[in-house]
Computed example of a mutant assay.
Amino acid sequence: MTRKLYLLNGPNLDMLGQREPELYGTTTLKDIEAQSARIADEVGFELEFAQSNAEHEIIGWLHDAHYDGAAVVINPAGLSFQSVPVLDALRILSIPIVEIHLTNIHARDEAHRHSIMSTVATTVIAGAGAFGYELAIRAADRLAADRATA
């Protein structure tokens, strides 16, 4: 049986490499997708990689992950701080959820320091830049394996 991993990216992450490179770096989302596909294959995940600027699409993919029994890595981006609908969709999941942020959101201004998604995430990775995606996939792999043997 193939294990599935949904790696979901929120608003404006399609602009990585162009948007505030001093903050987010020069790596593009396409670069992250290619690296993520290699790591997912290495650890035995079938990868569903997606990005949307539309909240409802992310919610639909979270529902798909629920039905597939898939692990989830999510960079909710700007939705992190106020999107109750995405939070509610994450609450449906009974599988590992890894929340990821390119920057250390805990060091940001007060309005962008507290992700409401963290309240349901199994673990949070923040501040490792694009490398954080590799860490997140490996964390999802370990968490899914631990859950399968529990």
Rank of each mutant, 00 (worst) to 15 (best):
R113Q: 12
G60A: 14
E46N: 10
G60Q: 14
A54F: 14
S80L: 12
I39F: 01
A50D: 02
V72D: 02
R3I: 06
A65E: 02
M117K: 10
T103Y: 02
S80H: 10
G129E: 14
S52V: 07
A145T: 15
H114T: 14
F45S: 04
L102Y: 10
A77K: 11
A77F: 06
E42K: 15
I58T: 03
S36L: 06
N53Y: 04
R147T: 11
E33H: 13
G127D: 11
N12R: 07
A140D: 04
A126G: 12
N9G: 10
Y67H: 13
S83T: 04
A126S: 15
F131P: 08
L62M: 00
A121S: 14
F45D: 02
R138S: 00
V72Q: 02
R3P: 11
I74N: 05
L29S: 03
V124T: 15
E33F: 08
A70L: 08
Y67T: 09
A144K: 09
D109S: 12
Y24A: 07
A54L: 13
L16V: 11
M15T: 08
I137M: 05
A37F: 13
I105T: 10
A89Y: 02
A111Y: 07
F49T: 02
L8V: 01
L143C: 06
W61A: 00
L79I: 03
I116Q: 14
E42Y: 10
H106C: 03
R108E: 00
Q82R: 13
V86E: 00
Y24S: 07
A121W: 12
A139P: 00
D109T: 09
T123P: 09
D109Q: 13
I92A: 11
N12L: 03
A107R: 12
A121E: 11
T122G: 10
Y24H: 06
D64A: 13
L16T: 11
